[in-house]
Design a protein around this nucleic acid. Structure first.
Lengths: 111, 111
DNA sequence: ATCTTATATCGCAAATATACGATAAGCAAT
DNA sequence: ATTGCTTATCGTATATTTGCGATATAAGAT
């Protein structure tokens, strides 16, 4: 039991869910905020702004990167991260389209 | 270790993360779609549309309800679920506001 | 009262996520 | 070559999620 059944859903559902999962932890939202508050790639010091250990922050960064929400140049010391706006916008659109599709079709819901 | 540190983040981050978590599984997105495709509360038959056991679907419905995304009249047999548009819209706004704030501040990112 | 049907809940197993400390890896400067 | 700094990865513990079958519950039908 408890096999992963996620693949049995359609690609749109999967990709939106994956995006949601990427931002489903306050730490990762906080990281995105930190990255966005600067007009430049941020190198390090995210750790000091979060109540988490360095290794944990590194893990969250990795997840954001795997989800394609941020880009990172991991060159030796002083890695450099910044938000991948294209991906972010793509998913934003995807989310909104789901939302509005739902909205339109269901104006006269019963409860 | 592995204590839950989510409470140490600010409320906005927590609430957005909680919403994202609610829709972070394809099954739950699929359920929202099913609920939205009808102009009435749907009673049951969601189970038939998903590749999951009845008990599992029930669990996902519960999570969506806990997150406030759907309302449900659980009156004996034939429970009745439908989308809570207010909550959904609230979170949509919240998400967009995060997104646009980020966007504006970071037009000239370096990578 | 009993049966049927629909849904929720319980109990459990397996998978994933969260978090940390310890350690490795990479490079700059000495 | 060694030191120091920054970041990634490994190993591990614990928590949470996912999923199912079995069982309970609730109400309508017989």
């Amino acid at each position: 039991m408890a096999f992963n059944k996620k693949e049995e859903f359609n690609p749109k559902e999967q990709s939106l869910a994956a995006f949601a999962k990427a931002i489903s932890h306050p730490a990762r939202i906080a990281i995105l905020n930190v990255l966005a508050k600067r007009n430049e790639c941020i190198c390090g010091d995210i750790v000091e702004l979060l109540p988490l250990a360095q290794s944990t922050v590194s893990q969250h960064l990795k997840e954001l990167k795997n989800a394609g929400l941020i880009d990172g140049n991991i060159d030796g010391p002083r890695s450099c991260y910044c938000i991948n706006w294209k991906a972010f916008e793509k998913f934003n659109t995807e989310f909104n389209s789901l939302f509005t599709t739902l909205k339109v079709k269901n104006e006269k819901a019963c409860c």
